[in-house]
Structures are given as structure tokens and as C-alpha cells.
């Protein structure tokens, strides 16, 4: 089976600003793919290129086996889109907007529509101008999720949703994935991506800096190990000299170190020599992975890794 989305070397400039600078992205059919990056990194630009709203300056873009610019209408029958900033027609009710968008694609499943409206606790009678941001977002979500499509492109779809609705959203996306639909989920809510996505791509300044399964990405980075030790002094001196050990911190009888995956075995073997009383090890969270890619930006913002 081919990949749902295959992007390589994508370049898109707006005037002098290079929004995408040789960006690569592969989304396999049937997966929920997390797309991470802060504001302005190029997430929305990528999605708009995938929708054929923007024309790529260079690079190869394939979506569901077609060219998103040339075959836009045919491809759009097979996908649905949730923008991050939803503006509704001021004088149309939410229900009317959902039905209208559905009819433009040739009708939507009324039972699914009603079920989604109920689950998202959306009042479909309210006029577009009167909805809060979160409710406008729900209208776009219902319109997209009620459509019978293979691919969902979601650009920060949960901005403005409360935690309860966020939970509903995650459940609905999991159901979509179980139905075999492919989802590209752009987000900067890392917990959401961690909960939903097996694979992620991290974008920075228009380039993909990390891409792969969360497991792979974790193995590329460090595990934090905290040990309660009898000879913490000796352990501190010894471990500090080892390759692949970083940020050695002492707190009385407790020692905390960040360990590269390659050195993990070695470090654990050595620790036993210092009288281990307690031991916790946790793999890097997605937040750690993400922030590591953005350490430069954090430094310029005056945030140091040690202080986190």
C-alpha cells in the first residue's frame, strides 16, 4: 500500500521569507501522524500545500496518490480538513454550516452528524457570529468527521476546546483510526499527540528535524535515571567521567543523570557497585524530545535546560 502523504524537498516562500525549506513528510496509510512545531514553523503552510490552496515552489508532493495542486477537486472528495482558526458565516447557524459543507461534498451521513453534535455538546441553532472560539472549532470538527473520507487533515484542531471536549476529540480520532482512516494531526498539545500518534514529525524553521515512531525517537535520546545510593559521592565522580552521561545532579544520597540510550546498560551495570537503594528510570517524554530540538530557541528565550 502506498503512503497517504509523501512530501520530499518541499519549498514554499512568501516573498523573502522561506516558510518551508526542503521539508520532508511521510504519512502511512491508516496511521495517526503527529505533526509538531511551534507557531510559525511551517505546519499550516504544509497543510495548505497538501490541500492545493498554496502552490509548492519546489519539491515533490503526493497526496492519496495524486498531485494536490492539479487533482485538488478529485482528492478533496476523499479528505476532510479542520482549520486551526475557524471562521463561520455570521448569519448561518452552526447546523446550517455543517450541512452546507456536507452538501458541497455530496452529502454527509446524518446519523453520524447528529451523533457527533451530541458528543461534542454543540448547539447547532446558534448563529456563526455568536459562537465562542471553541464552539466554532466544534462546528468544523463535526463537519469534517461526519464526512465519509479516507484522510483527515487537522491543523491544531483542538485549540479552544476544554479538557472534557479534548477527551471526546481523542476518542473520536481513535475511532476514525480504528475505521482505517488516516489522520495528519498538527498540534502543539504534546499530550494529545502522545496519546493519539504512533509516529510524529517535528518541524523547525521549515525543515523536518525528527521523524519516526515515538519509540525510535525516544531511543535517539536520553533516559533520566534517578538512584538512591549508598556511595553517592563515588558514584557522582565515576559517572561524570562516562561517555553518554549528562547533567549529573546530586541531592544528598540521590543521584540523577540523563543517559544516552547506547550507554544505558553500562550505567546501570556500574550503579550496582555503589549500593542501589532505590531506582527510577523514565524514558523521555515527547515534551523532552520536542524541546531538545528547540534547545537553541529556548536558549535565546533565556530558558536553560538545567532549570527545567
Amino acid at each position: 500500500m502506498t503512503d497517504a502523504i509523501a512530501v520530499s524537498g518541499l519549498v514554499k516562500s512568501f516573498g523573502a521569507k522561506r516558510a518551508l525549506d526542503g521539508f520532508d513528510l511521510t504519512v502511512r496509510t491508516g496511521e495517526v501522524h503527529g505533526f509538531l512545531g511551534p507557531n510559525g514553523a511551517g505546519k499550516s503552510t504544509t497543510i495548505r500545500v497538501l490541500l492545493g490552496l498554496l502552490r509548492a515552489d519546489a519539491g515533490d508532493v503526493r497526496l492519496l496518490g495524486g498531485d494536490p495542486w492539479r487533482d485538488a477537486v478529485a482528492l478533496h472528495r476523499r479528505l476532510a480538513y479542520v482549520p486551526g482558526e475557524v471562521n463561520l458565516w455570521p448569519n448561518l447557524s452552526g447546523g446550517e454550516a455543517i450541512d452546507l459543507l456536507g452538501r458541497l461534498r455530496g452529502g454527509l451521513n446524518p446519523a453520524r452528524r447528529d451523533a457527533l453534535i451530541e458528543r461534542f455538546e454543540l448547539d447547532p441553532r446558534i448563529k456563526g457570529r455568536a459562537y465562542s472560539k471553541g464552539n466554532r472549532q466544534k462546528v468544523a470538527l463535526v463537519a469534517a468527521l461526519a464526512a465519509d473520507v479516507e484522510l483527515l487533515l487537522m491543523d491544531e484542531p483542538t485549540s479552544g476546546l476544554d479538557p472534557l471536549m479534548e477527551a471526546v476529540f481523542q476518542q473520536v480520532v481513535q475511532e476514525a483510526a480504528a475505521d482505517g482512516r488516516t489522520v495528519l494531526l498538527s498540534s502543539h498539545i504534546l499530550a494529545e499527540v502522545e496519546a493519539l500518534c504512533r509516529r510524529v514529525t517535528i518541524i523547525r524553521q521549515g525543515r523536518a528535524v525528527q521523524s519516526g515512531s515515538l519509540e525510535e525517537l525516544r531511543s535517539l535520546t536520553r533516559t533520566t535515571v534517578t538512584a538512591g545510593l549508598r556511595d553517592a559521592d563515588d558514584a557522582e565522580r565515576t559517572l561524570a567521567l562516562l561517555d553518554g552521561v549528562h547533567h549529573v545532579q546530586r541531592d544528598d544520597g540521590h543521584l540523577t543523570v540523563d543517559v544516552d540510550t547506547a550507554s544505558l546498560n553500562d550505567v546501570l551495570a556500574r550503579l550496582t557497585g555503589f549500593g542501589v537503594r532505590s531506582l527510577t528510570a523514565h524514558p523521555p517524554t515527547l515534551e523532552d524530545l520536542f524541546l531538545r530540538e528547540y534547545s537553541e530557541e529556548l536558549a535565546t528565550l533565556g530558558v536553560h535546560e538545567e532549570s527545567r
Binding site: 458565516w89 446550517e96 447547532p124
Partner: peptide, 26 residues
């Protein structure tokens, strides 16, 4: 109080022309 709209679109509100007429009616 804000007046409520229809929970569902009427049969006529279908397609770009209908949308434009609705948007532009005022």
C-alpha cells in the same frame, strides 16, 4: 437576546450559489 437559527439547513441551502445568495442577501 440573540435569535437562534435552524438546527439543520433547509433543502434549498445547497451549493455555492445558494450559499452566496444567503451571504449576500442583505
Amino acid at each position: 437576546a440573540e435569535r437562534l437559527g435552524r438546527p439543520r439547513a433547509s433543502a434549498r441551502l445547497s451549493g455555492m450559489v445558494a450559499l452566496t445568495l444567503r451571504r449576500q442577501s442583505g
